[in-house]
């Protein structure tokens, strides 16, 4: 039965096993305690053992059928969009963060259209400004201007 599995599905199950073993390993560095007074390590070790066991069982399962091509571009672009937002929202402000997010999301799509991207940036910046900055008073600057010119 193991032979019929595709390697990627097996890799994920092995990942689950590795994660379970890691949880056990970390758990043993904590105090386990006694049955009457269980320490902080007791429950984690049980969970780690369970996780490892389920990973082993999942190895023998038939994989979920019907997966399409792996959307590598979409995945990378969505991840980069979040990353860019997180990096820019504090240091550069709302407008750059939203622009970067929308641009990167557009790159993840099959046919990005420049005009649509510009319109989306405009609309979302407006929502962000009026709803989150003016309405909910989140401590976000629209644009963080560099303190020294050219700096």
């Amino acid at each position: 039965m193991l032979r019929r599995l595709d390697p990627a599905a097996r890799l994920v199950s092995l990942g689950v096993i590795a994660f379970g073993l890691y949880v056990i390993h970390e758990g043993t560095t904590l105090r386990i305690g006694t049955m009457a007074r269980i320490g902080p390590g007791f429950f984690p070790i049980i969970l780690g053992v369970a996780m490892t066991a389920f990973g082993v069982l999942a190895l023998f399962e038939r994989p979920a059928a019907g997966r399409g091509a792996f959307p590598a571009r979409g995945l990378v672009c969505a991840a980069l969009a979040l990353l860019a937002f997180a990096l820019l929202i504090r240091t550069a402000g709302l407008v750059p963060a939203v622009s970067a997010l929308v641009l990167l999301m557009a790159l993840g799509q099959p046919q990005p259209r420049p005009l649509g991207v510009a319109a989306t940036i405009l609309a979302l910046t407006a929502i962000g400004y009026f709803l989150f900055i003016l309405g909910l008073r989140l401590p976000i600057e629209p644009i963080v201007w560099p303190t020294r010119s050219g700096g």
Partner: peptide, 22 residues
């Protein structure tokens, strides 16, 4: 192409505003 960036934007703002932290 309009929907997903918008949802992503709300997700970003939502998670940022939990503790005002990135």
């Amino acid at each position: 192409r309009f929907l997903y960036p918008t949802v992503m934007f709300f997700i970003c703002m939502g998670s940022y505003s939990i503790n005002n932290s990135t």
